[in-house]
């Protein structure tokens, strides 16, 4: 084989390792640009210092709490919704109306997040404001409600997939022993699908942590540590979006790379956990 003929394979290999290297390159860039802050007391920066740039305090603790509060609340709302919808679509009505439901859910996974944020501002926020009286209405609750709607479709699809992976023979065997469909589901399908349920939940949590627009538009972006669901909060992602216009050489600007570093480590840990939960599953766009 001559040299010219090997060109396509060389390109394929370069493309694969090049794009794989990109994920490491992102980490390296965050480390280089965030370096001036890495000299500070990192533990204090991340775990208790407040964010007061005018007093040279660049603590990210409020944003870390904000991120965790918004995404955990969203996950807690989305989980029962997704689980029930998956049961309906895969077990109770596997044909006709279940299939239609799956199609709708699939379509939902491709919807722009900024549209969810936009609708949230004009539909949800005013109603929350009148419902709970006072405040701006922009709160952890508002962001979590919209975020739940964003992550539910992904969860539903992975849950359905994990139900359907259970061998059909097992289900027929259970039916032959006199199980109703729901008993088959509870005793045969559910225990076997636990891994899939876990990976769907992890994936959804990762999406919730990484989403920027919904939290930025609906959570209120206050820099204090939130105490209740009705308090406004600022997430790590919003922090990056809000501060990036600062002077390039200021420490305030450098601190967003620390934000990025925390987010990167958080999401890649989730990705690795995902592979451990079910080694064969990849990221489903």
């Amino acid at each position: 084989m001559n040299q010219r003929l090997q060109l396509p394979e060389k390109f394929f290999r370069l493309a694969a390792w090049g794009s794989a290297g990109l994920s490491l390159l992102i980490l390296v860039f965050m480390l280089i640009l965030g370096r001036p802050l890495l000299g500070h007391d990192l533990f204090a920066l991340v775990f208790h210092q407040p964010w007061q740039p005018d007093r040279q305090l660049y603590g990210l603790f409020p944003m870390l709490v904000g991120t965790l509060a918004v995404s955990t609340t969203a996950l807690l709302m989305a989980l029962p919704l997704a689980f029930g919808t998956a049961i309906l679509a895969a077990i109770i009505r596997p044909g006709g109306c279940g299939r239609l439901l799956v199609r709708i859910v699939q379509l939902l996974t491709g919807m722009p997040t900024v549209v969810y944020g936009f609708v949230g501002i004009f539909l949800l926020v005013p109603r929350l404001r009148t419902l709970f009286g006072g405040g701006s209405g922009r709160s952890i609750l508002a962001a979590a409600l919209m975020l739940a709607l964003l992550i539910t479709p992904t969860m539903v699809l992975i849950f359905i997939d994990s139900f359907q992976r259970v061998p059909r023979g097992w289900q027929t065997a259970a039916a032959a022993l006199g199980c109703t469909p729901m008993q088959t589901f509870r005793h045969v399908i559910l225990p076997r699908a636990a891994g899939g349920l876990l990976s769907g939940t992890i994936l959804a949590f990762g999406r919730a942590v990484g989403d920027t627009m919904i939290a930025l538009m609906l959570a209120g972006n206050a820099v204090a540590v939130p105490c209740s669901l009705l308090d406004p909060a600022r997430t790590l992602t919003s922090q990056i979006a809000l501060v990036f216009a600062a002077d390039f050489s200021s420490l305030e600007f450098k601190s967003i790379f620390l934000c990025g570093l925390i987010l990167y480590l958080l999401t890649s840990t989730l990705t690795i956990a995902l592979r451990l939960a079910r080694p064969t599953v990849g990221y489903q766009p």
């Binding site: 992102i26 965050m30 990762g206 942590v209 990025g260 990705t271 990849g282």
Partner: peptide, 22 residues
């Protein structure tokens, strides 16, 4: 390779934007 691609796919888009900024 699969692991690296999954990590890249799971990276929040704002981080990719921050990378573009750097």
């Amino acid at each position: 390779l699969g692991l690296f691609f999954d990590i890249l796919a799971g990276t929040p888009s704002i981080i990719v934007g921050l990378f573009g900024l750097t």
